[in-house]
Write a protein that binds this DNA or RNA. Structure first.
Lengths: 229, 229
DNA sequence: AGTTACAAGTGTAAATTAAACACTTGTTTT
DNA sequence: AAAACAAGTGTTTAATTTACACTTGTAACT
C-alpha cells in the first residue's frame, strides 16, 4: 500500500554544492576546482558531491566540506535548492550550502588533490551550471546574516585585529566602513576581549589582537540586545 | 562514460511542500489538509506533491500551488530544502516554498476535494514530518522579506484600507504597530493611490480604499530609495 | 433631530541611531 | 633625530525611530 503510493514517482539525483568561503589578503575567497569529469570537464565549479541514500542533506554537506577542506565542525548554512538547470543528459537537483572557514586551517594538500584554488570573490571566473547564481545568492545571504549574527569570526583565526575585522566586513558588504564608527559599534557590544599582543605584520605601530568571546555574546542576547554591524 | 559516472549514485524522491498563506479576519492563515494516504494518513500536512522527472523544482511548486488553490501566477519564494527527517520507510527530500495568495480568489471547492482548511498561523495544529519547522522558517523569512519588499500586497485584494494593511503587517510581525507611525511611513513612500470609495464594513466612518501602484514603486527604486515597513 | 458609539484619521516632540569628519600615537627604518 | 605609516581616538550633525492623545465622520439609536 505504502510502496504502491511512491512506486510511480520519479526519483532524482540530488547533490550538495558548497560555497566554501575563506578570508585572505583583505578579501573574501571561494574555493573552486577544475571539474574532473564530464559533463563540462575542466570547467570551474564549486565543491560538491551526491547525497547518499540514507544520509540527511546536512550530513552530506558536512561530508563534502570535510572531504575538500580537511576541516570538521565548519560553520555552514543552507542557501537553497537549485533545480531548474538543464544539465546535459542528466538533471541533478542541487542543494547549495555556504561555509565559513578559517583559511589557515585548510589542508593545502587537498588543493592539489582536487585541482582546487581559492579565488577572490570579486574576481571569480565563470562557473559551470548555476554555480555562479549560487555564489551570488550566497553573498546576498551572507550580507544579511553577517549583519545580525556574529558569524564573521568563523572566517578569522582565533586572534584577530580590529583593522582585519573591519576589512572582513568591508569585503562582505563590498563597501568601505568608517574606522571610528566601526570600532565604536563593535566594541560597544562588549563581545570582544583585547589581548596584550600586537600584530605587527602590517604596520610599525602594530594592532592589538582581540578574541571573540562567545559567553559575552550569549550574555548580550540574554539581555535582549542584538549583534549588529 | 557520462552515464557511468552517474550510474552508481543514489536517486531520491523529491517533493515540494507549499506554505500557502492567506490573510483573513486580521490574521495570517495557512492552508493545511488532512493527509489522504499513508504514512501518517489523517495527519495535518502542508500542500505538497512530487517533482516530476523533467520538471524544474520551481515549476513543480507552481503546479502544486495551482492544483490546490485554483490560482495561477502566485507570488512564491523558496524557503529551502528539508531532508533530515526520518520518514517512515521511504526518505523524501522536500523543498519548501511559501506562497502569498489573495484568499478571496481561492477556489473553495478545492478545500472540500482535498479536505483542506485555512488555519490561523497562531493556532496551527501539529503538522506531520518537518512541516511545522517549514512554517516556522517561512514566517521568519516572510518577516524579513515583507519588511523590505512590497510583497504583502499579494495577500490583499486590489483595494484595501490602511487599517487592513496595518493589521496585515501586525500579523506578519506578530506585534502591534503604532497607527500614526505606520501611516506616515507607508504614505511617505508614495506607492499607494487613495481611492474615493470607503470600506464601511468595520466602522461607521468608513476607511478609504487604497491601491498599490507598481509603477510608483518602480519609480521609488529607480530613485535609489527603498521600500521599508 | 439630537445623542451616542466607534473606528478612522491626524502632528509633534523626544530619543535613539547613524553618518560625517581629522588629528595624535607608537614603532620601525633611514 | 626625522620620516613614514598604519593604529587609534571623540564630537557634532543629520536622520530615523519612537512615543503619545485628540478630532472627525457616519450609522444607529432614542
Amino acid at each position: 500500500m505504502i510502496a504502491a503510493f511512491y512506486q510511480n514517482k520519479d526519483k532524482h539525483y540530488v547533490a550538495v554544492d558548497c560555497i566554501i568561503m575563506g578570508f585572505r589578503d583583505n578579501e573574501l575567497h571561494i574555493l573552486i576546482a577544475k571539474r574532473p569529469f564530464e559533463p563540462l570537464l575542466g570547467g570551474w565549479s564549486l565543491m560538491g558531491g551526491f547525497v547518499n541514500e540514507f544520509e540527511s542533506i546536512n550530513d552530506a554537506a558536512k561530508r563534502v566540506l570535510d572531504e575538500f577542506t580537511g576541516i570538521e565542525d565548519i560553520y555552514m548554512e543552507q542557501v537553497g535548492a537549485f533545480g531548474d538547470v538543464n544539465r546535459d543528459l542528466v538533471r541533478v537537483i542541487s542543494i547549495a550550502y555556504y561555509a565559513l572557514v578559517d583559511i589557515e586551517k585548510f589542508d593545502t594538500s587537498l588543493a592539489e588533490k582536487y585541482d582546487a584554488r581559492w579565488a577572490k570573490i570579486t574576481q571569480l571566473p565563470e562557473l559551470i551550471f548555476d554555480h555562479s547564481l549560487m555564489v551570488k545568492n550566497t553573498l546576498n545571504l551572507l550580507q544579511r546574516r553577517a549583519a545580525v549574527k556574529p558569524i564573521g569570526f568563523n572566517l578569522l583565526q582565533e586572534q584577530f585585529t580590529l583593522p582585519t575585522l573591519q576589512s572582513l566586513y568591508e569585503s562582505i558588504y563590498q563597501e568601505a566602513i568608517d574606522k571610528r564608527n566601526f570600532r565604536k559599534k563593535i566594541l560597544a557590544m562588549d563581545i570582544l576581549e583585547k589581548l596584550d599582543e600586537k600584530d605587527k605584520s602590517s604596520s610599525r605601530k602594530g594592532a592589538f589582537y582581540y578574541r571573540f568571546i562567545k559567553e559575552k555574546y550569549d550574555q548580550l542576547i540574554q539581555q535582549g540586545l542584538h549583534f549588529s554591524i
